[in-house]
């Protein structure tokens, strides 16, 4: 008995179904990986900023971007001190709140990240009125500087 060939449209349909499933699995995996990466961020809230100091050795001699990606709360302001020692002072409250000493004790924590290299940070050259606002561009620009020390100072 001769077998009838499978109609071409059926073959295509089966292939499409398989591809769809693969795509679904891929998307789910990416989602899960992304979710699990985010869940592993060391600093989930400002209460956790001290964990950066506790795990300081993990960041020493590593690029600043490695440390920044462990911080989930938004960095609201940054001040660069391009004098020896070179460092950034990061704050988690907006400048308007800082000017009034407002905010919870946890949110008013200061993160100081000392860097091996000097860096180009000029207050006067930053956007007027937003000199201290930490942007994605800043994170990219300064992300490869090498961390040599971390300080976390609370408002006790």
């Amino acid at each position: 008995m001769a077998l009838k060939p499978i109609p071409q449209y059926l073959v295509i349909n089966t292939k499409t179904k398989n591809m769809k499933n693969t795509l679904k699995i891929f998307v789910m995996m990416v989602f899960l990986m992304n979710y699990s990466c985010k869940a592993q961020q060391m600093v989930q809230t400002t209460k956790d900023v001290y964990a950066l100091k506790t795990n300081e050795q993990q960041f020493i001699n590593k690029p600043l971007k490695d440390l920044l990606k462990e911080i989930k709360p938004e960095i609201k302001t940054a001040t660069g001190i391009n004098d020896n020692p070179f460092f950034f002072s990061f704050r988690f409250t907006p400048l308007e709140q800082q000017k009034k000493d407002e905010g919870s004790k946890e949110d008013r924590i200061s993160l100081y990240v000392y860097l091996k290299e000097s860096f180009d940070w000029h207050y006067e050259k930053r956007p007027k009125g937003k000199e201290l606002v930490w942007t994605k561009e800043d994170a990219e620009k300064y992300g490869n500087l090498t961390v040599i020390r971390i300080k976390v100072i609370g408002k006790d």
Binding site: T77, T79, G80, I81, D83, N84, P85, S89, R91, L95, Q98, K99, S110, Y112, Y123, E124, E131, L132, K151, I153, K155
Partner: peptide, 23 residues
């Protein structure tokens, strides 16, 4: 490294730098 103020003074100073400007 060059000497730095200890934490207590450093943080007060940086609080003010944010208010007074980092020039």
């Amino acid at each position: 490294q060059s000497p730095e103020f200890p934490d207590y003074i450093l943080d007060q100073m940086l609080d003010l730098v944010n208010k007074m400007g980092s020039s």
